[in-house]
């Protein structure tokens, strides 16, 4: 391994670790759930990305497949992280959490459970509950 590659990989890993630490600090300092999610996505994207990139420089894309597996980990992480964040924010909003704003005003747009007309899953569960209760009664 050449010296330049070594230095590059060293810098990637340490900067990635620093971004992870920043996301942890943001998790503690931010005022509400939604802003904390922004801080969390810091570690999910650039933190994890730079650490794994630095490790790929170390391992190389050789025949032992370590580098390929590392890249697969990164790809899976980049595909799943936004879906989890989206589900988290939507669940928090539908549960009645309101985003914090700097001036204390309510946000310019928001979402209630009633606004989602096509939530078939919830409707069917309610129907199920009613039917299930009747089934248990007899």
């Amino acid at each position: 391994m050449t010296l330049a590659l070594e230095i590059l990989s060293w810098a990637c890993i340490v900067v990635g670790g620093a971004f992870c630490l920043l996301s942890g600090i943001g998790l503690m300092r931010m005022p509400d759930v939604f802003t904390r999610m922004h801080a969390a996505s810091l570690g999910d994207t650039l933190g994890a990305g730079l650490i794994i990139l630095g490790l790929v420089f170390q391992a190389g894309l050789g025949a032992d497949l370590v580098g390929v597996k590392l890249l697969l980990i990164l790809v899976f992480l980049l595909f799943t992280a936004p879906v989890a964040t989206h589900a988290l924010s939507k669940a928090a909003l539908l549960d009645g959490q309101r985003p914090w704003t700097a001036d204390g005003q309510p946000p310019e747009a928001t979402l209630e459970r009633g606004d989602i007309a096509d939530d078939d899953f919830l409707e069917e569960i309610r129907k199920d509950r009613a039917g299930g209760g009747a089934g248990r009664a007899d």
């Binding site: 943001g26 300092r29 931010m30 946000p107 928001t110």
Partner: peptide
Amino acid sequence: QIVLSNLAVARCVLDPGRIRPRMAW
């Protein structure tokens, strides 16, 4: 874009007075 916005959010984490959360369509 991810790298650019990462730097912006990192600045916000270091100085939480900067954040102005908004929610809009």
